[in-house]
Structure formats: structure tokens, C-alpha cells
Amino acid sequence: MAAVQTTSERALNRIAIVGVLIATIIFLAPIYWIVSTSFKPRNLATTIPPTVLFEPEISPFVKLVLRRSQLREQPTPEEYAAAPWWERLVFDGGEKVVRDGQGNVQLSGYPSRFVNSLIVAIVSTVLAVGMGTITAYGFSRFKVKGEQDWLFFILSTRMLPPVVVAIPMFLMYRVVGLNDTHLGLIILYTAFNLSFSVWLMKGFIDEIPKEYEEAALVDGYTRMEAFFKVVLPEAATGIAATAVFCFITAWNEYAFALIMTRRTAQTAPPFIPSQVGSGLPDWTVIASGTFLFLLPVAIFTFLLRNHLLRGMSFGAIRK
């Protein structure tokens, strides 16, 4: 880059910055919409034009996790005064908290769906990345007969859209009793992510010079030890990137989750839209559910950002 910019270069630069700003605003607008709606009072959620300035409320989140029903009659002032703060928020919305026979507060369907999503996404990511790394290492370092064919075969498992295999998978799962189980979804997502993980990790491991392992072998380690002590730390960047992608795929998956699960193992993606159809939709609650659903991926990616940005190996091999 030139040390001194000409006037036209400076103008171009400014135009580029303005363009990027506009693009950023367009891309972030839906996220702003969701986040702002999840903090709005219910009556402001659907105003036209949209309300931009409002007093943020936490009530949508309270309503999100609690099971509620319509109030037939207003609570008495004593009842209202005796209720904890979160129950009052529900009363204010013209609803009441549902309790069981012992008077225990009932939770809505959302928390368990959220936990299901976490379990399925984390376990399937660990499995897919772990198995993918080992497979990729094998393909990268050893002569495998028909290597190209195997790699193509592995990739080809991803060529069919999930919807195509969903029905046969559903029938197979019904026979073996994996419908609506965590294990069923985990197996499905692991299998679906594995091909991607193998290909991505092969690229990363190919980049790690063979000499590192050879040095470790000569230094007195077995191949297994060399893999764990030298290859894995070097592949950390690749593993992080692959894990982020696998996690996002598993976390956001909708079609399989919709077909394969009903209650016990249902994840958040099919659950959130199902709430739109039940009665008059409370958009603030749906928005808060969506907002919470966005957080884990954002946090996960944020935690791994250093690995994602760091170069592969940093100059200990002279070429």
C-alpha cells in the first residue's frame, strides 16, 4: 500500500467505508429487530411504524420460561401484593402462572427444548469433530487404497438434502426406537457433520508439516503420542473452526428435528415457530426465545475467535 494516498484513493476509501456501513446496517437490522422486540412491552411489539424508543422490559423472558394461562378474573390486591415480582409481571399481561396440585410453578416448554438443543449440539459436535480429525489424519498421513474414492464417498453423504432422507430415516428410526430420543438426533447430526468435518480437518492437517511428527517419532514417541502431543495442538485452529461450523449446523438444524422429535428430545428450532400458531401470538415472547437461542452460537464463536483468527503454524518451519 502506498504511504501517501492520492485524493481519488481517499475518496474511494470513504465510499467503501460508507458502503460497508450500509451493508452492516442492513445485515444487522433483523438481529436488532429481534433483540429490541424481546425487550418490548407486548402492546408495542406490533405497532406501525415500529417503536424505536421504549422502556425495556424483562417480562417477555419471564413469560418465555413459565407456563401461563389466561386470567378469567383479576387477582385481588392481596393476591397481587403477595405474589413475587415475576408473577406480578405475568398478572400485568392479563395471564397467570400455572401451578400443579402442590402449588409448584410449572415451566413452559422452552427451557427443556433449549437444554435438548445444547445436549444434542454439543455431543454431536464433539463426536463429529473427534471422529473427523482422526479420519482426516489417517487420510492425510497414510497411504489409503482408493483414497480419492473414499473421500468422494464421504462427501457424497452430504449431497442429498436432509428432507430427501428424512422420511426413510424416520421409518428406520421408528423400527429401532430412536424416534424422539437424544441419541437419535445425536447420531443423525454426527453422521451429517462427519463428512464436512473430515474434509475440513484433512485440509488443516495437510497443512501441518509431516516433519513435526517425524521429529517426535525420532525423539522417542509412538505415533499415537506424536498425534496427541504434536499434531493436535497444531491442529487446534482447524479443530476450533470445524467445531464452530458443526455446532452451528447442529444447533440450527430444523427439518430432521421437526420430523424426528415431538416432546422428549425436541430441540428449540422446531419449538419456537410452533408457538406462533398457539392462540394469539405474543411476539415479544417469541422474540425473546429467538434471542436466547442466538446466544450460545455467538458465545461459542466469541470464545474461539482467537483460534479462528490465528495463523496455522507460525514460522517454526523454514521452507
Binding site: 508439516p209 516433519e211 513435526y212 517425524e214 521429529a215 517426535a216 517419532l217 525420532v218 525423539d219 522417542g220 514417541y221 509412538t222 504434536v230 495442538p233 497444531e234 487446534a236 503454524s313 507460525f314 514460522g315 517454526a316 518451519i317 523454514r318 521452507k319
Partner: peptide
Amino acid sequence: LKCSARDIAMVFQSFSLYPH
């Protein structure tokens, strides 16, 4: 024998120092 059983050391052209 495997490398580890031969008790021999090697210096590579690329040096192969473990970067981590």
C-alpha cells in the same frame, strides 16, 4: 524396530521445532 526404539536423534532441514 520403530524409530523410538532405535535411540537415534535427527536434525531436519526444516528444523521442525514444535511451534506450540
